[in-house]
Write a protein that binds this DNA or RNA. Structure first.
Lengths: 148, 148
DNA sequence: CCGATTTGATTAGTGATGCTAACTATATTA
DNA sequence: TAATATAGTTAGCATCACTAATCAAATCGG
């Protein structure tokens, strides 16, 4: 098992993602936003407004779940529900300034958390790591699922 | 903002963890185990038996939540609840063979998923990535929170 | 040694979040 | 234009997190 370098590297990546992922989810909770809500809000912030069904597909939740998520986020002033000009059935969801500010706050805090871990690394190691991650991210996210 | 190489690398790592983390959570669901349950079970598999309170602290959930989680996992044959020999109030939780097999199956599938992404990389790039992740994991997990 | 306090675990009750099935209203199509 | 498909919602159910309250055992102070 240890003879396979791909497997071994995969294990290291897996452990890292598992561990750092937990830390990042802690940030969501600390700033009072659920992971699903943050993900949906980040999608709206970076991909622009979208209809409920599109958001549901993007976030891989059912349409009723997205309906409720949007309703609750509208209640909290994070998004607006507008009529779709092209389809009388559709509902266009747009992020508010408050929503965008929340996304930015969470995102900034998560990035800062990662950045702390990079302090003290040599510039050479830093650029090597950076290019590694960029390449891997390309592989991990083949479609345009920019969720933050 | 782009002038800070640490910040920039941190952003790349953040995106990667966000994206791959979602994929790994999909594996949990596909194999019929919730993320929390897998995490707790993996903790028991790698750290050995523990009391309910210890597990709750380790997994950062409330004690009542861990009580129910353990009860449901016992119902499903994944763990055993045993009296603590040192404390009449305590309940010692031990993973079963079935539970261990589930952890191994999920873990193997997650690692295989990551491994697919590494296919086609040069051996040189592979070792560079491996050492980068090992170093970062050390930073991301300063305490002994081996959760898989 | 015994009453008071602390601690481990559970039960009860609430809220958030996921789902499917069923329903309404609008679009599309045959 | 009647039949069908699609967007969104509502209703009902399951899971899983939390806090507050309870029970039993351990520990501490007099």
């Amino acid at each position: 098992m240890r003879a396979n370098p791909h497997r071994r590297t995969a294990e290291q990546i897996y452990l890292f993602v598992q561990h750092l992922g937990r830390r990042l989810r802690d940030v969501d909770r600390d700033l009072g936003v659920s992971p699903t809500r943050f993900s949906a809000l980040a999608g709206l912030a970076f991909e622009g407004p979208g209809n409920v069904g599109d958001l549901a597909a993007f976030e891989r939740v059912s349409r009723p779940s997205m309906t409720r998520l949007v309703r609750d986020m509208e209640r909290d002033g994070l998004v607006l529900r507008l009529p779709d000009p092209d389809d009388g059935r559709g509902v266009r969801v747009r992020i508010t300034e408050k929503g965008r500010a929340l996304v930015e706050a969470v995102r900034a805090r998560k990035i800062a958390l990662v950045e702390v871990h990079l302090r003290g690394l040599e510039p050479q190691a830093l650029t090597a790591i950076g290019s590694s991650f960029a390449a891997l991210d390309e592989l991990a996210e083949p479609r345009e699922e920019t969720d933050a």
